[in-house]
Design a protein around this nucleic acid. Structure first.
Lengths: 152, 152
DNA sequence: TATTCATATTTAGGTATCCTAACAGTTAGG
DNA sequence: CCTAACTGTTAGGATACCTAAATATGAATA
């Protein structure tokens, strides 16, 4: 007799939310598996677009540890999509910058994936699209909460 | 000059949607990494609750290939959470059933995760919670579309 | 009934991503 | 200076997924 109706509603929402997230994971995997660049690599590449992201920053932003970021960066470098250069201000640091090929790859990959998703979104009714649009900022907020909470 | 404003809006929504999904993947990974059962294993276990899920069905439902499902099932079996038994109707098939320990594990794992997420959802305003609640069924719909599309 | 084709699962082998721990070089404070 | 803190790479290991091949059973058909 210790549960209030408020709690129950929250827990039920949490359950549905978790289920949607789990599905999303598989959907993302599938999407990634049909592309050349994984979505993590695409994320790295985007951060490298403005010409000088640091490895640590990339890792933090991506939600992974530094060695995992290094690994992806090396793959991108081998593919000719980014360059690693010394940081002029701090020679411990490495700056990761997209090459021209890298820029092109981002645009291509983004366009392809967006068109694919847009195709699905296009089958929704306007009210449904509105619901998604309204929820996305909240999802962002939730994701950030969860990410920060775990960042100990 | 071939893009209509409608398309642009859809593509922009698609972009935001993708970004939210990518974040969700990392959030799920983090959540999973702090628990005994991965969310995939928890999914298997839930299907095994009613006493006889087949391997192929589990795989399909989970969005993975059969050998991947087998792998998780074997782990759960070794942990004493499910039993594999012959299907009385079709001796090619295997029925996966949760043990008593498995049932308990599901309840525990679900409760823990739901409480954790509910804690985050509790920090949202009512309007934000409503937005999430309204969007979840649409997310489900989208996830299913994407899953079916890839199921070739 | 014998053969053949289809279905259900497991096994074997390989890939991608992530992690922790240990190492090397650089910076900055005492 | 010299030590502590920081940035990144290397090495080694875990996990989850996949495809292809093997095994066994079921169904269809000649």
């Amino acid at each position: 007799m210790n549960t209030s109706p408020v709690d129950d509603a929250l827990l039920a929402l949490a359950q549905s939310f978790r289920e949607a997230l789990r599905q999303s994971v598989y959907v993302m995997r599938r999407l990634d598996s049909e592309e050349q660049l994984s979505s993590a690599q695409l994320g790295v590449l985007k951060m490298a677009l403005d010409g000088g992201a640091r490895v640590g920053g990339i890792a933090r932003n991506l939600g992974v540890k530094v060695p995992s970021a290094t690994e992806q960066i090396i793959k991108l470098e081998r593919a000719g999509l980014v360059r690693r250069e010394a940081d002029p201000d701090d020679s411990r640091a490495v700056r990761v910058a997209a090459t021209a090929a890298g820029r092109a790859a981002v645009e291509n990959a983004d366009r392809r994936r967006n068109e694919y998703i847009a195709g699905i979104l296009g089958t929704l009714g306007q009210a449904e699209r509105d619901a998604v649009e309204a929820a996305l900022p909240v999802f962002d907020k939730i994701n950030n909460s969860l990410q920060n909470q775990a960042r100990n």
